[in-house]
Design a protein around this nucleic acid. Structure first.
Length: 154
DNA sequence: GCCAACGTTGGC
DNA sequence: GCCAACGTTGGC
């Protein structure tokens, strides 16, 4: 059992969008970074914990808890010329991009980026490291518990 | 809109 | 393999 933080722009898919999706599940399409892809392809298992994070928005932060709901499979948008995620270098017989499905566990209060930065127990989180831009980052069990503990305080 | 940080591309 | 140029991310 592993834990992850996954960034989503609320304009694209917010925690409420996730809650309204069929089975409260969305395919995590559009990742076009090899390191993030490799996490999904090589390390994610069904049931892994996910911190659902809102990025590139007025109030960035953790907006809910989710879980990995599938192992990785090819991202259809890489072959779709009309998609903004189209990748003309991707071949059907050798898909370059893969993704997992993510299912809502529960919406939480927003644990803002500022509050995350202020929490000593979250200091080691990869997502808070200077210059980090990865949209998917590993979370340690200790960090996961610390996030839950902070959320339970209110 | 700015800009730091980092990833990717492509010439050599 | 090096590295400059360029593109993207994402907080502010």
């Amino acid at each position: 059992m592993a834990y992850w933080l996954m960034k989503s722009e609320p304009d694209e898919c917010s925690i409420d969008d996730l809650a309204r999706s069929p089975n409260q599940t969305v395919p995590w399409v559009g990742v076009r970074n090899y390191q993030a892809r490799n996490f999904m392809r090589d390390r994610m298992l069904v049931g892994d914990g996910v911190l659902f994070y809102h990025s590139s928005c007025p109030e960035p932060g953790i907006a809910g808890l989710a879980e990995v709901a599938s192992t990785a499979y090819p991202d259809a948008t890489q072959f779709d010329k009309k998609s903004k995620y189209f990748d003309e270098a991707a071949k059907r017989e050798e898909p370059r991009w893969q993704h997992v499905d993510v299912k809502l566990v529960r919406k939480t209060r927003l644990l803002s980026l500022a509050e995350m930065r202020n929490a000593p127990s979250l200091e080691s989180m990869v997502v808070l490291k200077r210059g980090n831009r990865l949209s998917i980052t590993p979370v340690t069990p200790q960090e996961w518990r610390a996030v839950l503990e902070i959320l339970e305080r209110e």
